[in-house]
């Protein structure tokens, strides 16, 4: 079981007086679902990009099982809010690209990509051009592409941010289903308070100016889902409602009303 560790990360973008993130430490174990949340501009995405290796921190270190990372890598697959799909490829070829990069032969790629598309509930849509797909479908292709890398960690930057409410709920259960077997460590950025609580085994609240971790707590709702309890019954639990109000308070703490 691997662990992704960020220790004392500081990131400063050139030309910015204040660091985007300062003194942030965090770890994600395989089987964990860590949610980063907080107000706009608090450095959530920056921290995630540092974990991905797409942003190089000014201070601090990102490591996997004690070994410092060297840039981006397939062990930490990324799902982007913009979906970042390749429109010149069909849905299947987008997924197969990740397999090709791993050196998997053409015939196997085809079958594996189909299997991955089935996992994200896009069965039989492999030939569809991605630019003809809806936002939810595209995000699922992006998810299948990330899974094709067979990562230990899945890093998702507001993957559901641009989706409508109904699609979003479906995607939440899909993400839970993918995480539930326990062999993936997930780090996800979201603005959604309810989403953070429902999905996270741990919720990390960040605060801005400079971006830092303000609060981190364990949440058990996603484990209850993994154990078989339906989402509706979890959301109806008064404990969920209370936790939701507390999380909202924590996120907006210190913000002038």
């Amino acid at each position: 079981m691997s662990t992704l560790t960020l220790s004392n990360i500081a990131v400063r973008y050139s030309g910015q007086p204040r660091p985007a993130v300062e003194g942030a430490s965090l770890s994600v174990g395989q089987g964990e679902f860590v949610v980063l949340t907080g107000r706009s501009g608090c450095g959530k995405s920056t921290l995630l990009n540092a974990a991905a290796g797409l942003v190089v921190p000014e201070h601090g270190e990102v490591s996997v099982d004690g070994r410092p990372i060297e840039g981006p890598g397939a062990d930490r697959a990324v799902v982007f809010q913009s979906d970042a799909l390749f429109p010149w490829f069909s849905a299947r070829d987008n997924v197969a690209f990740a397999l090709r990069v791993r050196g998997i032969g053409e015939r196997q790629r085809h079958a594996l990509a189909n299997e991955l598309l089935r996992r994200v509930r896009l069965d039989g849509l492999g030939d569809k051009p991605v630019w003809e797909m809806s936002g939810g479908m595209r995000q699922r292709v992006g998810l299948a592409r990330a899974l094709a890398a067979e990562p230990d960690f899945l890093l998702m930057d507001e993957p559901l941010g641009a989706l409508d409410a109904l699609t979003r709920e479906r995607m939440q259960t899909l993400l839970l289903d993918i995480w539930a077997p326990g062999n993936l460590g997930v780090l996800m950025v979201t603005h959604g308070i309810e989403e953070a609580l429902l999905l996270g085994t741990r919720v990390v609240v960040m605060a801005p100016d400079p971006g830092r971790i303000a609060l981190s707590f364990e949440a058990g709702f996603s484990r209850r889902y993994a154990a078989g309890e339906p989402v509706r019954s979890i959301k109806a639990d008064p404990a969920f409602t209370t936790a939701r109000a507390e999380l909202a308070d924590a996120i907006f703490e210190g913000e002038p009303a």
């Binding site: 840039g71 697959a77 982007f80 799909l85 390749f86 990069v101 990330a146 094709a148």
Partner: peptide, 26 residues
């Protein structure tokens, strides 16, 4: 698009693969 480059790189694509499958088609 920067995100597409990042996506390819985070999947482990080599520089050559990034140019052939992402940059040129883009």
């Amino acid at each position: 698009q920067q995100d597409r480059l990042s996506a390819a790189r985070s999947l482990g694509a080599t520089r050559r693969q990034v140019i052939r499958f992402v940059v040129l088609p883009s």
